[in-house]
Design a protein around this nucleic acid. Structure first.
Length: 721
DNA sequence: AGCACGCCGACT
DNA sequence: GTCGGCGTGCTC
């Protein structure tokens, strides 16, 4: 038999190999082959009795690794579709749908799982001796109600390993290994539903076949409770559920809460797990040892004996789009999967993507609305601070300062949101105007004062902070613009009597640092939180009543067509942090342009209205969701080579009445890490037309490439970066 | 993407 | 005389 093998190489075609079996193995089984002198694992993707190739060329399958397909029928079809839709090699698509451990290693280990438990001999006095604030205390606290797996502990207490070592020495805790996940302790307390939640749930329950829902619920309206009830219903039927969350949204608290609430075997799948842990979760789900998998983007490829429901939380989140290699959108593939499987899927968001809103108005998504806040009495009030009439220092206006003081004095917590880390955006010589730039990206370097460095936030380049201008040797160097570090310093000077907690990528370097920082805020004592978008999602601060947003003007004028949508979603999310408990929240937005229509619309706290405004803009400019778009990106150290390639690529593209091509234009970051970057945007009102055009056009591209020139094709690009 | 093969410049 | 640059072509 001749097998047609999909190989994990960018070459977008199948390769034929001779197989010495009587009949062809099932599609999706792995095989070991020699490909151009290298050993490789490929996937059976077809077969035939004969081959047109000469016997000399045709090689043998060295080993059939799996007797059965690794992919259930509906996932296989989804992946075949994905390869076609994203115009990516099937072999790479299949390979990426597997945990990386299974891409290289042929046999998987017997899945087993390590649990940590309090020793039977440990009495309560020993438990009391461990300080509650230490990692050891936290570990004991977690284990008090039963054993937890290493995976659960990684999620709940990232720094648990060191504490475990210490406690194990004193025989307070011990480790044992079992071959499957066990259900956590049962916890039946569940909040009651309001009328809207119940109505949404009834609608979801009414249909057991494919139906896609858009659960549009404002922050605090109880979307999660609807997900959990819907999942529970599915579990009661003996089926399993998949819950996708954004990268940043998978907090230990979320997982723990869901685990307890559902009293089900819950697996977690995210990028911080080790390869073997991911494989374990993947294998366990497939083997029916898990009821629910919560995971980020790549968890969309998890398989179950009888998957009954998919939920996508924060469906608008950009982290669902893979930004390199096989550039899939997990939400869109989940929709495809649910459709092929004939099961319901829920997309949830307080700020749905324009794509989903449009799908809802076209009845491709059934809209379910939650407009009542479950716990808080009212929505936060939004106020704009006009920076043109307000003096400001270190990025903070006088008005904001007064409001912060008032809130703190009233015993409340304050969040100062600034989506830029570091001390200052740039350094400028006051006598000659010199601004240090990254030699590889040509962007102004960010000042990091604590680290005493100038850093490039795009490529990671850094150099020591100058004390004198390298150009004119003046020592008058001004730090321009305020990042989180500077704002923290400024706040510390003005509010010395209150604790200030900064949360951004610089402050939260190590595992567990985020938990530590959040714990400092968790007791509800008055304090100031300063941070980037790390703070915007998922975390609940009941005592937080005031949010101050610093410097969001850049998002109003970006060249990226999705920038304003993102800004609005971010501002809504940040606003949602305020006043979740009984106290009403307030949001102060500092801007140089408070009259900007988007900011004016934010006032009304009505996302639908803002979305309509944005939608109108997109319709005018014929951009997604009113057109299908694709993007050709290329980069090279040699500008001329890059320009030549892009010009030729453009010339070959069959522009017509229904097909448009914009560019070549420099990328949003025209130079990054020493490479010049350019892009070509292709759009059409007809998705099929665009797809066909790109399909034939793309075959001509390899002939245009030179050494040191890389290009990639992005279908449904998320940004113009 | 890799990797081999192949044809022209600066070294022992 | 050779070592090595990367342009071109192939992978069942």
């Amino acid at each position: 038999v001749i097998l047609h093998i999909a190989l994990p190489t960018p070459l977008d075609r199948l390769f034929e190999y001779r197989f010495d079996g009587l009949e062809a193995p099932p599609l999706g089984a792995r095989v070991r082959v020699n490909f151009s002198g290298r050993p490789m694992l490929g996937f059976v993707a077809g077969s035939s009795a004969e081959s047109l190739l000469t016997n000399k060329k045709l090689k043998r399958i060295e080993e059939l690794v799996d007797a059965r397909s690794l992919f259930q029928a509906e996932l296989w079809q989804t992946l075949e579709f994905a390869a076609r839709y994203y115009q990516h090699s099937l072999g790479e698509v299949l390979s990426q749908a597997l945990p990386s451990a299974m891409r290289q290693r042929e046999r998987s280990r017997e899945p087993g799982i390590d649990y940590i438990v309090l020793s039977a001999a440990t009495d309560s006095s020993a438990l009391h001796r461990a300080a509650k604030t230490s990692a050891q205390g936290a570990l004991i606290e977690l284990l008090r109600f039963g054993a937890l797996s290493t995976i659960q502990l990684d999620a709940a207490l990232p720094a648990w390993r060191a504490a475990y070592q210490q406690l194990a020495k004193r025989h307070v805790v011990e480790r044992f290994r079992v071959s499957q996940f066990d259900p956590p302790p049962i916890n039946h307390s569940r909040p009651s539903l309001n009328v809207e939640q119940q109505a949404a749930l009834n609608t979801i329950h009414s249909k057991a076949r494919y139906q896609a829902y858009l659960l549009f619920g404002i922050t605090g309206s109880g979307k999660t409770e609807v997900y959990l009830r819907a999942i529970q219903q599915v579990l009661e039927k003996g089926q399993q559920a998949l819950l996708l969350v954004p990268e940043i949204g998978l907090t230990p608290q979320t997982v723990q809460r869901i685990r307890e609430r559902l009293a089900a075997r819950v697996g977690v799948m995210h990028s911080n797990l080790s390869d073997s842990e991911r494989e374990l979760c993947w294998q366990s789900a497939l083997a029916g040892r898990l009821d629910v998998v919560i995971g980020t983007r790549s968890a969309v490829f998890c398989q179950f004996p009888d998957l009954g429901l998919i939920v996508i939380d924060e469906e608008h989140d950009a982290s669902y789009k893979q930004m390199e290699g096989f550039r899939y959108h997990a939400r869109d593939l989940a929709l495809k999967r649910a459709h092929l499987r004939g099961i319901p899927i829920i997309l949830g968001s307080a700020t749905p993507s324009l794509e989903s809103l449009r799908n809802a108005s076209a009845n491709r998504l059934h809209l379910l609305t939650l407009s009542q806040r479950a716990r808080a009495a009212s929505l936060p009030r939004i106020e704009l601070i006009d920076l043109r009439t307000q003096s400001q220092q270190d990025g903070l206006s006088l008005r904001a300062e007064q409001e912060i003081r008032a809130a703190l004095s009233a015993g409340e917590q304050v969040l100062v949101f600034r989506n830029r880390r570091g001390f200052a955006q740039q350094l400028q010589c006051e006598s000659c105007g010199f601004v240090p730039h990254c030699p590889r990206c040509e962007q102004a370097l960010t000042v990091h004062r604590k680290a005493h460095a100038l850093k490039c936030h795009y490529c990671g380049y850094q150099q020591p902070l100058h004390s004198a201008c390298p150009s004119c040797h003046s020592e008058q160097l001004a730090a321009i613009g305020a990042g989180t570090e500077r704002i923290q310093d400024a706040l510390a000077q003005r509010f010395a009597e209150w604790p200030i907690v900064r949360i951004d990528r610089d402050a939260i370097r190590s595992k567990g640092a985020l938990e530590k920082a959040l714990a400092r805020v968790g007791d509800g004592a008055p304090c100031i939180l300063v941070g980037t978008q790390m703070l915007a999602k998922g975390h609940d601060f009941p005592k937080l009543t005031l949010v101050v947003v610093i410097g969001c003007d850049a998002g109003l004028h970006s060249l990226d067509f999705r920038a304003s949508e993102r800004l609005v979603q971010l501002l809504f999310q940040v606003s949602g942090r305020a006043g979740r408990a009984e106290r009403p929240g307030r949001v102060l937005i500092q801007s140089h342009q408070p009259e900007h229509p988007l900011l004016q619309l934010l006032f009304k706290q009505n996302y639908t209205e803002i979305a309509q405004h944005l939608m109108h803009e997109r319709e005018q400019t014929k951009l997604p969701p009113f057109a299908a778009a694709a993007m050709l990106r290329a980069e090279s150290a040699d500008v001329l080579r890059l320009q030549e390639f892009m010009q030729q690529a453009r010339a070959l593209f069959p522009v017509s009445q229904t097909l448009e091509c914009f560019g070549p234009m420099p990328a949003l970051l025209p130079k990054r890490a020493g490479k010049h970057r350019a892009q070509l945007v292709l759009t059409s009102a007809e998705r099929g037309t665009l797809h066909q055009a790109i399909k034939s056009w793309r075959t001509a591209l390899p002939a245009l490439t030179r050494a040191d020139l890389h290009y990639s094709l992005d279908i449904d690009p998320m940004d113009f970066s």
